[in-house]
């Protein structure tokens, strides 16, 4: 089975949602999730990316990771637009609980309440979480 579509775009476009719930460092979940998002974009699916719980820290500006020997991958979120991944959502409650505002984030996002997010999740066809 081919990984890319031959030509003329995908036969099926599904609503994919990626739910990021983990802090960017400490475990590998966030980094490998981002790799997954980039691949979905290459398949021209309708991609939605959500950040909630400690996942909101993935978008925090001015990450300094040298001291923990990890690559700061937050700039990659700014590249998502170039892959036509523009539907980025942050859960309001998660942001507020951590004392953050949208001004602290590296990319523009839509802030949704937990209730609104629930509605958006209901509309998805594939949800991948980590």
């Amino acid at each position: 089975m081919e990984e890319e579509w031959d030509e003329g775009g995908p036969e099926v476009v599904k609503r994919f949602m990626y739910v990021n719930r983990k802090a960017p460092y400490g475990t590998v979940y966030a980094l490998e999730m981002l790799e997954k998002v980039l691949i979905a974009a290459a398949f021209e699916q309708d991609v939605h990316v959500v950040f909630m719980d400690d996942g909101v820290y993935q978008l925090k500006k001015e990450q300094e990771t040298k001291a923990i020997n990890m690559k700061n991958f937050s700039p990659t979120f700014r590249a998502l637009e170039g892959y036509d991944v523009e539907k980025l959502y942050v859960e309001k409650e998660s942001l507020e609980a951590r004392g953050l505002t949208v001004d602290d984030l590296v990319v523009p996002v839509e802030v949704l309440s937990s209730e609104e997010l629930k509605g958006l999740m209901d509309k998805q066809e594939v949800i991948l979480t980590a």
């Binding site: 890319e4 599904k14 979905a40 290459a42 398949f43 066809e125 594939v126």
Partner: peptide, 8 residues
């Protein structure tokens, strides 16, 4: 891509 295809 195999994962995305599976989702599709």
């Amino acid at each position: 891509g195999q994962l995305i295809e599976s989702g599709i």
